[in-house]
Design a protein around this nucleic acid. Structure first.
Lengths: 198, 198
DNA sequence: ACCTGAACACCGTTCAAGT
DNA sequence: ACCTGAACACCGTTCAAGT
């Protein structure tokens, strides 16, 4: 996890990990089954950081807390979203996660099928939002103005007027990703609430 | 693109592509700058398959058509969603795409900033939904009942009751992914419409 | 019980040498 | 103008041999 956080998930190789641990890559096979096992462990570690102690909360608050908690995990571990939704979700950690979320929704009055739907829609958005990040070359934690300026500079004079307008706007004023996330999350939660009453 | 569709994006290597073309990997460098260039081309090819001839349509219909068109591309090219949102979006094809979408939203009355927000929220969902696919080992195009049965079988007796309930439900009855997609898309579009009137 | 060296079958990329 | 062979610095994984 340290290696992934510091050097990026693409640097998590058996050989590099061995180097960090002062050991040859082949030695790792005494402790894990292979690279897949390693990535599964990494996924579970990230997943366990998402708050699913949601009891006693209104279902909307519970889903909101889960989403915010996921975003905190993504902030610490930028590789987490990609890993979580590219891998099998049949481990115990994944099942526990799925069970808690479905439990909240079903107890709130969603039918089994509707709860599955709501879960899929919510997670599509939560994980999808993270990956919509425009692979910032300056690293994360920026306010996006530098990137907006780059894009603006890359647009040929007079072409793509709407893209240029948006790039110009956010060259001057920072883009608030968290506000955008919560705006979209609110739309979905409100819609789900309306669908709950049929 | 043929190679990616038939053998998966992970099989798209310079060496394998050379093999298919009856040529050594090194020869490819006479035609493209490198693997990055190859993947950019692949992304643009996929992107150009998404319908953005949206003129004359109501903004909601336009966004719906775009979403449906994207899903058709994903059905043909399962690697497309992952490639598109993992790569730089500064090429001409990407800019054209972004410009058309923003144009529809801005002309519909969204402010520059609100249009950027709406775009991000929509694409997070559209691309995110695709990647939420539970890497089906049986290949795609299944109705999910086989997978639901596998998950059900993997759940220890008496544990994860809600997950078990959902898995049981969809062991018998197919899960309609497209319906779920459109349900979520509708929630977001309705929410955006409401936000348009403030 | 754990580590190592060596090997195998892979990667992307460069570059001098060929036609 | 294009292709090739050979090389370099990488991958994941296996396995006999060491301690």
């Amino acid at each position: 996890m340290e290696l992934a956080d510091e050097a990026g998930i693409e640097s998590v190789t058996m050989r590099e990990l061995g180097r960090r641990l002062g050991v040859k890559a082949a030695s790792l096979y005494n402790h894990i089954a292979g690279k897949d096992d390693l990535l599964d462990g990494l996924m579970n570690l990230a997943l366990s950081g998402i708050d699913i102690a949601l009891d006693g909360l209104d279902w909307k608050d519970a889903m909101r807390r889960r989403a915010v908690s996921a975003r905190e995990v993504f902030a610490r571990h930028p590789w987490a979203a990609g890993l979580i939704d590219s891998r099998d979700r049949r481990g115990r950690e994944s099942l526990a996660y799925v069970d808690r979320v479905l439990g909240v929704l079903i107890r709130a009055g969603f039918s089994t099928a509707d709860a599955a739907n709501a879960f899929l829609v919510l997670d599509s958005y939560i994980y999808g939002f993270e990956r919509q990040r425009p692979a910032a070359p300056e690293g994360n934690g920026t306010d996006g103005t530098g990137e907006a300026r780059e894009i603006l500079a890359a647009i040929p004079e007079g072409e793509y007027p709407f893209a240029a307008r948006v790039a110009a706007e956010f060259s001057g004023k920072p883009f608030d990703r968290e506000a955008a996330f919560e705006f979209g999350l609110g739309l979905i939660l409100d819609g789900l609430e309306r669908s709950l009453g049929h």
